[in-house]
Computed example of a mutant assay.
Amino acid sequence: MANKQALRDLQHRLAQRMQAARETTQTVQWLAVECAGQALLFPLKQAAEIFAPVPLKAVPYAKPWMLGVANLRGGLHTVIDLAMFLGLRETGNRLEAQQARLVALNAELNINCALQVDKLLGLRGDEHFQPDTGESSGPRPRFAGARLLDQQGRRWQVLDLEALSRHEQFLRIVD
């Protein structure tokens, strides 16, 4: 029971920090997550609430990365395994980690969707990063934003959640 309360407290503090970060005058703020070992950054303006994994209802004939449908605070949301969608994890390998979280997309994007990520890494500001001037590995989808390096030399990929939510492959959930 204490673990559930600690998780609720953490989620509440993160939600407060995300709201405070949205209201500050800094140019860009990020929600840092990890998927299959890949460090990703979501713009705070495009991310909404964070949820612990909940029971899902399977959707027949859906792509393997479409995990199902969940009730999140009374709203029906599709749940996408982001690592699987991005090709970072094979389709047969489902994530069973306790650190997994669901990040709902902002309601302003007009899509009831939550992305399953392997773990939350916290909030970051632009001051934590510099542009990654390394070589590009070919064409990238529109939702793949800039690549950044943090002060420890770790590479981060920015994901434009609005562009992702309108990407043709993302919207085509059935085989």
Rank of each mutant, 00 (worst) to 15 (best):
M1G: 13
A6R: 09
D9I: 07
L10D: 15
L10P: 03
Q11V: 02
R17P: 11
Q19G: 01
E23P: 01
T24V: 05
T25A: 13
T25Q: 12
Q26G: 12
T27E: 07
V28Q: 07
Q29M: 12
A36I: 04
Q38P: 11
A39S: 14
L44S: 11
L44T: 11
Q46T: 04
A48P: 00
A48T: 04
I50H: 06
A52K: 12
V54E: 08
K57M: 07
K57Q: 12
A58T: 09
V59Y: 12
P64Y: 00
P64Q: 04
A70M: 01
A70W: 00
G75L: 04
T78P: 00
D81Q: 00
D81P: 03
A83Q: 05
M84F: 15
F85E: 01
F85N: 07
L88H: 15
R89K: 02
T91P: 05
G92S: 10
N93K: 13
N93F: 00
N93S: 13
L95H: 09
E96L: 14
A97W: 11
Q98F: 01
Q98K: 14
Q99G: 03
A100I: 02
R101M: 01
R101E: 03
L102C: 10
V103M: 06
A104S: 13
L120A: 04
L123P: 05
R124I: 03
G125I: 04
G125M: 02
D126S: 10
E127S: 08
H128M: 10
H128Q: 10
F129V: 15
Q130W: 01
Q130C: 03
D132R: 02
D132V: 10
E135T: 11
S137N: 04
G138W: 05
P139Y: 03
P139D: 08
P141I: 06
R142D: 09
D150W: 00
D150V: 01
Q152R: 10
G153S: 14
R154V: 14
R155S: 09
W156V: 05
V158M: 11
D160T: 04
A163F: 15
S165K: 15
R166L: 02
H167D: 11
E168I: 05
F170R: 04
D175R: 12
